[in-house]
Design a protein around this nucleic acid. Structure first.
Lengths: 344, 344
DNA sequence: GCGCGCGATGTGTACGTTCACATTGCGCTG
DNA sequence: CAGCGCAATGTGAACGTACACATCGCGCGC
């Protein structure tokens, strides 16, 4: 800070407050406050004078003071576990935009593991910032538990879960999505279908698995124990290498696109053709999926839509709206070239 | 639990404050404040009593009040433009973790375009929350300008830029990374090398392009005008289809892994083999790159490292440390199977 | 035995804002 | 022309915390 002395730094003066603005505008501080809060019943002339004073001083309202007196933090907390992934990241971006437009800011925190302690500490951190509402994008198996334990007295929604708690969940219908994917494979004549699932403690992984199993069941096909993966391409690859040693199946439904990518890699290395020898379906439709080799058949989820809707829902609840029914978002099957009719 | 029983059921409305805690603990509110701020010179016994009272009441310090009186928001602002991308997302996650550990929270905002107005409004939004420091992860061409215009009087760093302003930048040495990639292709005997670059207004795209051009120049090879892309796999694909109609090159250096993926897709569709006919190098080393077909040769950047270091740097500056020299982070060439010696 | 220093604790006040209520001015009605 | 209502503005409190300073008690050196 000591380097630049070209401009005569006006002393480290404190930021202007409404009283300073009032003095310049020749009104009382309360009038300034009214201008800031868009109160009606202000003479246009006074309004202009105050506005001018604000600009002149470069005044910015002090959010802390505002929060203190109104006891409204104007902050929405986001508890996430994998902000790096395409799905959560997309939702969060939509959430941020929607929140900002509504005059709210976001406080995001990542949990390091799905341990109860970790969830609780994340939640605790958010509560200590007195968030007005909560959005959870994380493995939810224990989140509801933690929310109850901590007595978070604020509206909340969980994303990407099933509708286990309809009032507080907002979700793409994972079960239907998984059924669509599975149905697609069945329609192509496949009878021996594997499923590489997401981690057991992710409710959405669980939901996709359920959809898969139910659809097989409805078609009277043999169901087999899904492999529990970790969402990564690496897992898909190594699981693929292992599974392909037996090769007692002709199609695979992967819990997400990354694992599908890894699995296809394993097929290639094992000298098998996709979709010639084995059909593969993913889930999510990340932007890259269209350019995989071959382009991936997958189930598209509208992550941004979910993000927007979650804010809508929470703000409604904060406003006191009661009728907050919400439909699950419908997923969409995108058929590309990683699936083909079973060779007879 | 039942200290003063005379009062009726305390109204549920107000959260407990330090005075409530003090009353329960039988000390003054100032002592409670001391406990909260880890002040020395507190009798162990008193400390225990206060701690007990805090637990009993479920007391949480009011951050707004704290911020008001200390005029420290304990918030670091992040201006981002593409939080969905792997690189920024990874950095941000690291930043969040490091910040939280240091007792800071994050306020993240996305800019919708690289227009000056958009940058300025994003910056303005962050400043209105009186952030104590600023991290910029965005096309910086106009960011410095905006920062100057708005007179943000806080420490800041920009990520993923070149070292155009060494004091305020933290970056993976993109130029060196690009040179490594290009050198690798040259070493394999390629002489006609294309470059598909990132958007022109991203400084890091510019830096990679510079590295590419310089390395070619040093090797006395023909340089050709890079294609300006938009980071997406889609662009890589369509650019590839176009470029391959002429096919007057044997290798391509792509500005990121996604564009490389798209380009390889185009090669496949054009009946060309990678790396047999054409070698492809990416940049970033996203986790999926190892499973592309073929697995992608690319330049790895340690995004998390950058995130951590940025917080370190800013906190140092806030603490008043002067000696804040920082080295650029070295990238690393990861050779996989998308590159091969030029066929003679 | 007295004051001194220091550890431990208490008291007053300011931070910048909004809310509840008070006050002014003015046109209108009866 | 008194009084009423309403628009426009002003005044006095909070909100919950940290900082500066004041106070208390006690062991110690002289």
């Amino acid at each position: 800070m000591t380097t630049d002395t070209t401009t005569a730094e006006p002393e480290r003066t404190r930021a202007p407050n409404i009283r300073d603005v009032a003095r310049v505008a020749g009104v009382s501080y309360q009038t300034v406050s009214r201008v800031l809060n868009d109160s009606p019943n202000i003479r246009p002339e006074t309004l202009a004078r105050v506005r001018a004073a604000i600009d002149e001083l470069g005044y910015r309202p002090n959010q802390a003071a505002r929060a203190l007196v109104t006891s409204r933090s104007r902050t929405i907390g986001v508890l996430a576990s994998q902000t790096v992934h395409y799905g959560p990241a997309t939702s969060i971006q939509a959430i941020e935009t929607a929140a900002r437009e509504a005059g709210y800011r976001l406080s995001i925190t990542n949990i390091s593991s799905s341990e109860y302690a970790s969830i609780k500490s994340g939640l605790d951190y958010l509560m200590s910032q007195s968030v007005e509402a909560l959005i959870v994008i994380a493995p939810q198996v224990r989140v509801f538990e933690a929310i109850t334990d901590l007595q978070v007295g604020v509206p909340y929604v969980t994303l990407e879960s099933t509708g286990s708690d309809a009032k507080h969940s907002l979700w793409v219908d994972q079960v239907t999505g998984a059924r669509m994917a599975t149905r697609h494979l069945i329609d192509l004549g496949h009878e021996e279908i594997m499923h590489i699932s997401g981690p057991q403690d992710w409710i959405e992984a669980e939901a996709r698995m359920q959809g898969f199993l139910r659809e097989l069941d409805d078609a009277d096909l043999r169901t087999r124990a899904p492999i529990l993966g970790d969402w990564t391409a690496h897992f898909g690859y190594y699981a693929g290498l292992e599974l392909l040693r037996y090769r007692d199946f002709t199609a695979v439904f992967c819990g997400n696109d990354q694992m599908a990518l890894g699995f296809i890699h394993a097929c290639r290395e094992s000298g098998l053709d996709v979709p010639g020898d084995i059909s593969v379906v993913g889930f999510d439709d990340i932007p890259e999926a269209a350019h995989f080799a071959p382009p991936l058949t997958t189930v598209r989820q509208n992550f941004a839509e979910i993000g927007r809707r979650s804010i809508e829902l929470l703000l409604g609840e904060l406003r006191g709206d009661t009728d907050l029914s919400h439909e699950p978002v419908r997923p969409e099957l995108i058929v590309r070239h990683s699936t083909a009719a079973r060779r007879s």
